[in-house]
């Protein structure tokens, strides 16, 4: 797992605003579709897809490909590993802010 600074516990994967956004949304939604993610984050298809692949490769999210009628409906859900990584990252962020004050 890519932890760039062992002291802070910050996760390099979450440096990116879109990846952080995806994880925040997945933390509070059981599952969410590609289109809903796109609308919430205001990004293009290609951009979002790239970041989703990165997160999937890290094992932070599960992809479920389904259909609504004939249209593909891809939904995403967070994994246990993803939850842990995200919580650690947030804890680290909070610690750093407190530490600096």
């Amino acid at each position: 797992m890519a932890v760039n600074n062992p002291i802070s516990g910050l996760n390099k994967i979450f440096d990116n605003r879109i990846r952080l956004g995806v994880m925040s949304i997945l933390m509070v939604n059981d599952e969410i579709s590609f289109n809903d993610l796109k609308a919430l984050l205001e990004v293009t298809d290609g951009n979002l897809a790239t970041h989703l692949v990165t997160l999937e490769t890290e094992g932070f999210l599960k992809v479920h490909k389904g259909f609504i009628g004939r249209k593909t409906n891809t939904t995403y859900a967070i994994t246990k590993g993803g939850q842990k990584a995200f919580t650690d990252h947030v804890t680290a962020l909070e610690k750093m802010i407190k530490g600096m004050k």
Binding site: L20, S24, M27, V28, N29, L93
Partner: peptide, 19 residues
């Protein structure tokens, strides 16, 4: 750096609420 951490936390909060 502190500001960027605060921004990140606010982003997280906003996204959770909005979604």
């Amino acid at each position: 750096e502190e500001n960027s951490h605060l921004d990140a936390l606010q982003d997280i909060r906003r996204m959770m609420q909005r979604s």
